[in-house]
């Protein structure tokens, strides 16, 4: 009897479906590989050996179809905003957006006719990372905040039990 108990204790884990789903989502946040301006340099730095975003499961992907996160790293001009929106629309759900740097958050010092006054005006932003540009640590903090947000969200909340079983 003791053997059976130990076998179950060593190999069976009780949790909720929500916890498993959100754990897997937040542990492999794959951002799109694109940068718009100088913030992209800090983003690249965060991804390289010294800061190594791979530790958090953050691996840059070359296609929006394979991505979960869009990092808007830089000044979004009016001419480029439709392209960023298209990249967002090409990502499969669930998807998240990090606005990196003052320009992406509010237009920054460029309060002009040619610059979008905040990415929030054309895509839903989850995490704002302030700075001009933000240091790689700040971007890492943004990813940790995003992971915290995903951890607290309920993937199956409100879904009828029959649909959960069917899927």
């Amino acid at each position: 009897m003791g053997d059976v108990n130990n076998a179950i204790r060593d190999s069976v884990l009780f949790t909720t479906a929500d916890s498993i789903i959100s754990w897997s989502r937040r542990s492999a946040l794959w951002p799109e590989t694109f940068g718009i301006a100088c913030c992209a340099i800090e983003m690249i730095s965060a991804g390289c050996a010294r800061y190594d975003l791979d530790r958090f499961g953050v691996v840059f992907r070359p296609s929006p179809r394979q991505s979960d996160v869009m990092i808007i790293a830089g000044t979004v001009t009016r001419k480029f905003a439709p392209v960023v929106r298209r990249l967002y629309d090409q990502m499969p759900e669930p998807r998240w957006v990090i606005a990196m740097g003052t320009c992406a958050i509010s237009g920054g010092v460029y309060n002009t006719y040619a610059v979008v006054q905040g990415s929030e005006t054309f895509v839903p932003v989850d995490v704002h990372v302030p700075g001009c540009p933000p240091r790689p640590e700040a971007l890492m903090h943004g990813f940790l905040l995003l992971q915290e947000k995903i951890k607290r969200s309920r993937a199956l909340a409100g879904t009828p039990l029959e649909r959960v079983i069917a899927s």
Binding site: R78, N111, T112, Y113, A114, Q117, T121, F122
Partner: peptide, 15 residues
Amino acid sequence: DFPLRGYKDKLNPFG
């Protein structure tokens, strides 16, 4: 006579 901030619209709420 063109405003530097541009004209107000969806992407430019402070124009």
